[in-house]
Design a protein around this nucleic acid. Sequence first.
DNA 1: GCACGAAGGACCC
DNA 2: GCCCAGGGTCCTTCGTTG
Length: 442
Amino acid sequence: MDHMKKVGSSSCNDGVLLRMGLNDNKAGMQGLDKEKINKIIMEATKGSRFYENELKKDQQVNQRIEKMMQLKEKITTQQLLKAQLQVDKLVIELEQSRNLSSTIVHIDMDAFYAAVEMRDNPELKEKPIAVGSMSMLSTSNYHARRFGVRAAMPGFIAKKLCPHLTIVPLNFEKYGKVSKEVREILTEYDPNFMPMGLDEAYLNITEHLEERLNWPEDKRRFFFNTESATEKDKDDINMSAKCNEGGYSFSPVLFEDNTPLMDDHPEQRDRSVENSVIFGTSAEEVVKEIRFRIEQKTQLTASAGIAPNTMLAKMCSDRNKPNGQCRIAPERQAVLDFLKDLPIRKVPGIGKVTEKMLKALGIVTCSELYQQRALLSLLFSESSWRNFLDISLGLGSTHLEKDGERKSMSTESEINTAEDQYNLCRELCRDLAQELQKERLK
DNA sequence: GCACGAAGGACCC
DNA sequence: GCCCAGGGTCCTTCGTTG
């Protein structure tokens, strides 16, 4: 009962702070004076309608937690043991179906809107800027993040945190154009890649990797745009090649101090061998190549994650932001090592509510999520606890599904030949098999 | 009691 | 001085209906 009261009473401050206060989950936001920032945010927000609403929502979450804790008190040792057996049986099945054969890449453009605006207006480069309006910001650059300014923060509060912040209005038309340029590159590596908004995408490069093994060097050679960019970029490429360690690898951060690649004289572009770089055949090399090409084409940097499934790839791309990449090797142990001390809040799909509910059960990291699997199966809905189990085992989807594709036949205009029909049937059967497996043959 | 769909919440960008 | 978006997916809950 004691901890229950704690949840209820401490919530007034902590809970609302958790809701409204700085979320330093984002890249470029570590080691800030959180207390000072939170004080400014709270002072600016207190008494507003928004604040009252957040207070109400926080109380609702507390009630949910209280209910959950009451339920937990009633669970007997026997029930828990039984649940443990059942869940562990499922764990064995899930382990057997673990698929490490796909190479999934998550590409994430660094501070996308802000980076585009900085590129197009060099005056903004050294300043803290955010893109959006006084009422809502969509993103901020890394200078601004040092002040605690981040996406989904109202501009007027950001101005209090950083009085000399420049707020640039949104220009979706421009971002759409840049996004298209990036997609043109991505489609060469996976024609079925899955864009997520303007600044993110998932690719399945499994097939590309196979084909690439037989490619001559020239097909893997790319040219630098200008002289000025050459030396530095070459160094960066070489350095990143050396930065491989254990299960995952990192490339150095070169965002803040990176000179932009100005393509002032394309006609003078030197396309000699010295001005080129050859990428290897590994997944890391492919992703370095993609990021290199994106930067050469758009003057913008991207971060990337390489892993056996989409969930891991996404978390991985977050590891070494900005302008970095990270790989989880396709081995069970590498996956589990990556997850070991990872806070559950880093997992896509776990937001502040779920975080708070799990924290009340003493669960903060993914390994704790695994340790409490039996309890979770008794407290949460089937789909929730199964999702928790997938997360703690590092399981996720290994094939990409494009919106609308497969789900509806009417949009398929290219089913002409018998071969098309055969292929479609095969795909549908494979999907059905996967879904049945997912549903445990319900 | 079940199936179904609407409504609302959590989460994402 | 301005005073916390909008659009999407997925899941849960709840009311309606036969």
